[in-house]
Amino acid sequence: MKTTMPAERDMQQEATATGRDTRTAVLTRSVRANVPLRKIFVQANAGGDSRHGPLKDFVTGRDLRGLKAYLLIVAACSNGENGWSTTHDSAVWARLMDIHMTADDQSARTGAWRALLRLRERKLIDCCRSGTMITVTLMREDGSGRPYDRPDGKTEENRYLQIPAAFWTTGRDESLDLPSLALFLVVAREKNWSAFPAEKAPEWYGWSADTHERGLKKLIALGLVERREHYIKAPLAPLGFTKTHQYKRTAIMQPRRPRKKTASAGR
């Protein structure tokens, strides 16, 4: 039986791609500085029976792995080069989700496929496999099962938030738990310096006030979101005003501005 020497094992480990390496490669291949995500994934538009978006089911179902996988799929597929689809070996999918860190090869492959099936059940993607290869096709972010198309921002249904590629390439995603990742998307959905009252969370988003507060606190602690006090005139309040908090993403998590094209020499 052939054995691997310690030095050879060290060389193999050093040369093996990490989850972050793999996520960076996916983003580099899709040539995205920012990843668009329809706002209705986080919160439905006003006027319907409920304001809850598909994000609610990830939070209440405690599916952090599925949520991270879905955001990466949007990043990988939304450039449209392959018909809103992407194909990888199941081991690559497992590494994209960091499952390989806590499971052997076969268990990691199985875990990745199960995570993708949960997304298919939510009608956010379609997926199929052939041997060890898995193809995933993006669907509308509202969970309707309709085919995906790139949001253009021209209508209420097509308004979108943007997640900078640096969210993944600098490893910011790795430090977030489910409440903080959900609240990152909530803050990204709105204008800078918006208020996110915890008591409105059950009505607006579908999760508890406690989950809401924990998510915001962790984002602030990690330096991904900043907070400021905001005072509102209130003639009937004892002090004549009330105090609220407003939030915005810090600079590193703001969408990247496209580089301006320079004129060609001689023109």
Rank of each mutant, 00 (worst) to 15 (best):
L119N: 06
I232E: 15
E157L: 06
G48N: 04
G131E: 03
A17F: 12
W84K: 01
K39N: 15
R29N: 14
A94P: 07
G83F: 01
R140T: 15
K191R: 11
T87D: 05
R122G: 04
G19C: 02
D49Q: 02
R228G: 10
A166P: 00
G223D: 11
A182L: 13
A221K: 03
L224S: 02
T244G: 10
G206P: 05
W193T: 00
K68I: 08
E81Y: 11
K2W: 11
M5V: 13
P164V: 14
Y160G: 00
M101I: 14
A25K: 08
A237W: 01
R227C: 08
V31A: 13
Q246D: 02
I232C: 07
V26T: 09
A91W: 06
M11C: 06
I252G: 05
P179V: 07
G83E: 02
A46I: 09
R118M: 11
A188R: 09
V26M: 11
V92M: 12
E190Q: 11
D63H: 09
D104E: 13
S180T: 10
L116F: 08
D63M: 07
M5S: 15
G111L: 03
E226M: 07
E8V: 15
T87S: 12
A201C: 05
S130N: 03
P151C: 10
V187R: 02
M97Y: 02
S180M: 08
K243C: 06
D21I: 10
T18Q: 08
A263M: 03
E8N: 13
P147D: 12
H100Y: 03
C77Y: 03
R228E: 14
R51T: 07
E8W: 14
A112Y: 03
C128H: 13
D57C: 05
P147H: 00
S78I: 04
M1A: 15
L138W: 06
M97H: 01
K261Y: 03
W207H: 02
T86I: 14
S194F: 08
A108L: 13
T244Q: 12
I134Y: 11
K200V: 14
